[in-house]
């Protein structure tokens, strides 16, 4: 069984936002929608011992997503490989799933006609993988630092499996029971949370 996850190595991320731009390009996003912002709390520490940590974020493709069962139209759904996505043909833009997501990774665009809004989110580049099953999400393919690594966690030989098994990893808001599937290898001085 395939179960796609992403590993984010924060020690490699330099906050260049290339993944953000790549995502916008591939998904042709309106200006007010960002699927994968790379955020930072800013510089920490006291000179000369200062550091800055970047946290590339995106939909966590939770194993137990809050956003799927609350959808009244069945537009918000999850594939067997764990990919959480929205069927735009079914979505009516009620924004229940947007409110349900603890990570704020869903939204409707306010730059499209008022009555043509539907919920948008990261799909691990589902359409891209449909064209080429070997393709990685565009943010992963674009990351020149190899900070984002994508793969099948159920395959013990995959890079993500090896990284997760050999590194200390953190996940965001696990206390909510969503079982997020983005694993962060923390940078020195602090992790994703």
């Amino acid at each position: 069984m395939t179960r796609y996850v992403m590993v984010v190595d924060q020690s490699r991320c330099i906050g260049c936002q290339s993944c953000t731009v790549a995502c916008r390009t591939w998904n042709d996003l309106p200006l007010d929608i960002i699927y994968n912002p790379v955020v930072s709390e800013g510089t920490k520490g006291t000179f000369p011992d200062v550091y800055r940590t970047w946290t590339p974020t995106q939909c966590m493709h939770c194993a137990n997503p809050e956003c799927v069962p609350c959808c009244p139209t069945g537009a918000s759904q999850q594939d067997d490989d764990g990919t959480v996505w929205v069927d735009y043909e079914k979505c009516m833009g009620c924004k229940v799933c947007v409110n349900a997501c603890p990570y704020g990774m869903r939204d409707v665009s306010h730059m499209v006609p008022r009555f043509d809004q539907y919920v948008r989110k990261c799909t691990f580049c589902r359409s891209r993988r449909a064209q080429d099953p070997a393709a990685e999400p565009y943010c992963v393919a674009t990351c020149h630092q190899r900070a984002r690594i994508f793969g099948d966690i159920d395959d013990p030989e995959s890079e993500v499996s090896k990284l997760i098994n050999t590194n200390y990893t953190e996940r965001i808001f696990t206390e909510l029971g969503t079982d997020p599937q983005i694993y962060y290898i923390p940078e020195m001085g602090g992790g994703a949370r």
Binding site: C71, P72, T73, G74, C91, G93, C94, K95, F115
Partner: peptide
């Protein structure tokens, strides 16, 4: 009116589990 796509509001009845349904 608050929906992103009001003409298809009837889709709210199409699932069993959602509380909004």
């Amino acid at each position: 009116f608050e929906l992103g796509q009001p003409p298809v509001f009837w889709r709210v009845f199409t699932t069993k589990t959602a509380i909004i349904k």
